[in-house]
Amino acid sequence: MVKGHNAMETFIIGTATVTVEHDGANREPGSRESRQRYSYSIVTPEWRYDGNDIHSGVGAVVDIADAARSLFSFLGACAEWREYRTRNGYGGENADLFPEHVGQWAEQNSDEISMLAMDPADLD
């Protein structure tokens, strides 16, 4: 893991580079509170995928590490369900969380993705 400045983190997974960064905040309708918004990119030698669909809870402070764990949790769920679908020939409710090529990459790198999805506080 290569850390960037406090509003961005970069991870190397195999030949891919995954970057997660703070992308602003969205005010909740009818509230003074906001949700932090994060964007991310996954870049391999063959393709690039960009997303901006990771959000914090209402009133949360900027926490890049937590946003990255959320992204890796979604990627891990996608990989797990793709594997389930392959073994059983059906199912896979989370297999289409990402486009096919991203899901395939996540499945190929599921061990490392699973490790990155863990909260260090849970390892105690």
Rank of each mutant, 00 (worst) to 15 (best):
Arg32Thr: 07
Gly91Leu: 09
Ala65Arg: 13
Arg69Ala: 05
Val58Ser: 15
Arg32Gln: 09
Glu21Asn: 12
Ala77Phe: 14
Glu9Val: 07
His5Ile: 07
Asp53Leu: 03
Gly103Cys: 08
Val2Met: 10
Thr86Phe: 13
Leu123Val: 08
Ser39Arg: 13
Ile42Trp: 03
Cys78Tyr: 13
Ala65Met: 07
Glu93Ala: 13
Gln108Arg: 15
Asn6Ile: 05
Gly4Tyr: 12
Glu80Lys: 15
Met115Ala: 12
Ala7Val: 15
Val20Phe: 05
Ser34Asp: 06
Thr86Pro: 01
Glu28Phe: 05
Glu33Ile: 00
Asp23Ser: 12
Arg27Glu: 04
Ile12Asn: 14
Glu33Arg: 12
Phe11Val: 00
Val20Gln: 02
Val20Arg: 04
Ser110Ile: 06
Ile13Lys: 00
Glu28Ser: 06
Val2Asp: 05
Phe72Val: 08
Tyr40Met: 05
Thr17His: 09
Leu123Gln: 10
Glu9Tyr: 04
Glu9Asn: 11
Asp111Trp: 01
Ser41Leu: 03
Leu116Met: 11
Glu93Lys: 11
Trp105Thr: 03
Val102Ala: 04
Trp105Ile: 07
Pro120Gln: 07
Pro99Asp: 07
Ile54Gly: 02
Gln108Trp: 01
Val58Asn: 02
Ala106Gln: 01
Asn109Arg: 05
Met1Val: 11
Thr10Asp: 04
Ser34Gly: 00
Glu107Pro: 00
Thr15Gln: 14
Ala106Phe: 06
Tyr38Glu: 03
Arg69Ser: 08
Leu116Gln: 00
Asn52Cys: 09
Ser73Lys: 12
Tyr84Pro: 05
Tyr38Val: 01
Tyr40Lys: 00
Gly89Cys: 01
Ser110His: 04
Asp23Leu: 07
Val18Thr: 09
Gly59Leu: 05
Asp53Tyr: 02
Ala60His: 11
Val61Tyr: 11
Asp53Phe: 03
Asn94Gln: 14
Gly4Ala: 14
Val43Leu: 10
Ser114Glu: 06
Asp111Pro: 00
Ser114Cys: 03
Leu75Glu: 12
Ala25Thr: 11
Glu107Arg: 11
Ile54Phe: 05
Gly57Gln: 10
Leu97Phe: 15
Ala68Asp: 07
Ser73Gly: 10
Gly51Ile: 04
Asn6Glu: 13
Val61Ile: 09
Gly89Arg: 10
Ile113Asp: 01
Glu9Thr: 07
Ala65Val: 02
Met118Glu: 08
Thr86Asn: 13
Ala121Ile: 07
Glu46Asp: 15
Gly76Glu: 13
Tyr90Met: 08
Glu80Thr: 14
Asn94Val: 08
Glu46Ser: 15
Val61Gly: 11
Gly92Gln: 03
Pro45Trp: 12
Gly4Met: 15
Asn109Phe: 01
Arg48Ser: 11
Ile13Leu: 00
Leu97Trp: 14
Arg27Pro: 02
Gln104Ala: 15
Ala95Val: 06
His55Trp: 13
Arg27Asp: 01
Ala121Tyr: 09
Phe11Glu: 00
